[in-house]
Write a protein that binds this DNA or RNA. Sequence first.
DNA 1: CGAATATACCTCGAACTAAAAGGTATAACA
DNA 2: TGTTATACCTTTTAGTTCGAGGTATATTCG
Lengths: 112, 112
Amino acid sequence: MAQSNPPFMSGVPELLLLRLLDQQEMYGYELVRSVRTITDEAISLGEGVIYPALHTLERSGALKSRRKTVGGRTRVYYSLTGKGRTRLEKLANDWRRIQGGVETALETAVNA
Amino acid sequence: MAQSNPPFMSGVPELLLLRLLDQQEMYGYELVRSVRTITDEAISLGEGVIYPALHTLERSGALKSRRKTVGGRTRVYYSLTGKGRTRLEKLANDWRRIQGGVETALETAVNA
DNA sequence: CGAATATACCTCGAACTAAAAGGTATAACA
DNA sequence: TGTTATACCTTTTAGTTCGAGGTATATTCG
């Protein structure tokens, strides 16, 4: 019945968001730019990725939010919960494991 | 009309296959185990990923194949073409770029 | 003043990848 | 003889991300 695991490479957008929000609270529109900036332009996530991800993370209890009106515009600021911090640790470890695997593959000569 | 780019993280299975086949010709069933081995168990790709990927790569001209019968069993050996080598370079660069981006994000402190 | 751009939120549909399961067939081993 | 290992393959499903679109207010510039 094809009970599928998530693709092994996925979760990077989530990882980046959690990492950024672990350092300071931010709002969605700000995160769009911050992701691009902090990854040195290597990764660019559109609003169509960021907003749904934030909602999912909040629903899962990894983030909490509060609305704040600044100069007539409403912003939704997100920050990490304890659960979110745990999740961040897990995803960071997963990533490092994958990354190490790929690196080994790219650098190791296959000695038959 | 939603002409979507491939997800930015993808192409790792393809990268691993090209990398392995750049070193020596191999057949599908062998690659299933080699991927697991060379990535130090970090990445495991099933046959449902490997075989379709090989076919796609061959169709695109990155791989060429030859059949070889060994002990009553037919194996399809794949090896890189020039095009495949170019593709490997590209994917390896893409990967390093992404990897660097994530690493920076994980390690950089956000100084407001 | 009016128009264009920037800020800020959001959703929906399509595209793409990868996972799992299932299917065939031969050989080896117990 | 039956089970496990080798070796190929496809199809279905699930999951993620992408792009396009939609709303609304503020600012900037001609």
